[in-house]
């Protein structure tokens, strides 16, 4: 286990008595933390396998990797219930796995197979799993936000106690759909959590050049709703902030704009040559890798044995390897069925 410099103080504490646990961490029990760590690993391994498969020419198209953003996906959904809804983005593999999707069917979709979540019709950007409340990733920036408003209206009209969490990136915060959706969710006090994953760049555009306020969440005041900005690479902090937003939405107190500041360690998509950022910047964020940070803290706080970490990671690795075999060995869709699902009924 490699300890990043920033955490050397806590590393030293491992050998002695652990420092007082912060509230965000102590709020999570051991089983929850293990499950969260496993999901973070699953997301990381899934995306590494996706990337390798692409590089080897096993799949076509493109993909958007969220490597480095796992704490945001897993932390924000940790307190969602199975029947709560999520809406995701083009960079959505993490959200999907975090909400409980089967990585095998996800990879099969990535491979364009009939066994995939969308029978090979959607691909990486359109994975949906209605059985886990996942109403779909979205290829359009800010495409999910207005849909979340309708989901919120639906929950309210049917007097359900569900919550809808909609993910979007910093780039989406400059779309008109963001403004329209936050406003409507606020005036109608809809049970929606607007979860902005601010990973600093909208493709190549630095958010600092695209927005005149410091934080996306600062905009919440314009809609008369709550805004929270949190370190998106800190799983317990994300989970704690999301719990506030989820609980308030469920209680009928309306939406929250929750911003997770994070960073994608890979490029925007496969065409990215990283012309807009420096190696030093990427390396600095690599030192804040959310998986490593959580592991270090758990060990330092004696919440988990170091040897257990390897088992969790290996378990995830094994599941993804099996998923890859399932995807590779599945059948392609039949072209004769091309137009079958254009219309219902």
């Amino acid at each position: 286990m490699q300890i990043p410099a920033a955490d050397s103080a806590t590393a030293a504490a491992v050998r002695e008595k652990p420092a007082l646990q912060r509230g965000e961490l102590s709020a999570l029990d051991d089983a929850t933390l293990r499950a969260a760590l496993r999901r973070m690993h699953l997301i990381r391994k899934f995306e590494e396998v996706a990337e390798q498969s692409y590089m080897r020419g096993l799949v076509h198209g493109t993909m958007h990797l969220s490597i480095g953003q796992e704490a945001s996906a897993v932390g924000s959904t940790l307190h969602l219930r199975p029947d709560d809804y999520i809406l995701s983005t083009h960079r959505g593999h993490g959200h999907c796995i975090a909400k409980g999707a089967d990585p095998a069917r996800m990879l099969a979709e990535f491979f364009g197979k009939e066994t995939g979540y969308c029978r090979g019709r959607g691909g990486s950007m359109h994975i949906a799993d209605l059985t886990t409340g996942n109403l779909g990733a979205n290829g359009i920036v800010a495409g999910g936000l207005p849909i979340a408003v309708g989901v919120g209206m639906s929950i309210k009209a049917q007097k359900q106690s569900r919550v809808c969490m909609v993910f979007f990136g910093d780039g989406a915060a400059n779309e008109g759909a963001f403004h329209e959706s936050l406003n409507m969710a606020a005036i109608w006090k809809l049970p929606v959590v607007f979860l902005c994953e601010n990973n600093k760049y909208g493709m190549s555009m630095d958010i600092a050049n695209a927005m005149a306020v410091a934080n996306v969440a600062d905009r919440a005041s314009a809609y008369g709703t709550r805004g929270i900005t949190v370190d998106g690479n800190d799983l317990p902090a994300v989970a704690a902030a999301a719990k506030i937003a989820i609980d308030q939405a469920r209680q009928g107190d309306g939406p929250t704009l929750l911003e997770c500041k994070t960073y994608r360690l890979r490029g925007h998509s496969k065409s990215d040559r990283n012309l807009y950022r420096t190696k030093d910047e990427i390396e600095a964020w690599r030192q804040r890798d959310p998986i490593r940070r959580l592991q270090d803290e758990l060990v330092a706080q004696q919440r988990i044995e170091a040897r257990e970490l390897a088992a969790i990671e290996q378990g995830a690795q094994h599941e993804i390897e099996e998923a890859l075999e399932f995807a590779k060995s599945s059948a392609d869709p039949d072209p004769a069925q091309l137009t079958r699902d254009v219309y219902a009924g």
Partner: peptide, 23 residues
């Protein structure tokens, strides 16, 4: 009665329809 937000409204119809309503 809604705000003047056609894009948001169309999306709201999508979301409501997806989750059991008939907007």
């Amino acid at each position: 009665d809604t705000p003047i937000s056609e894009l948001g409204l169309a999306g709201a119809a999508v979301g409501a329809a997806l989750t059991g309503m008939r907007p």
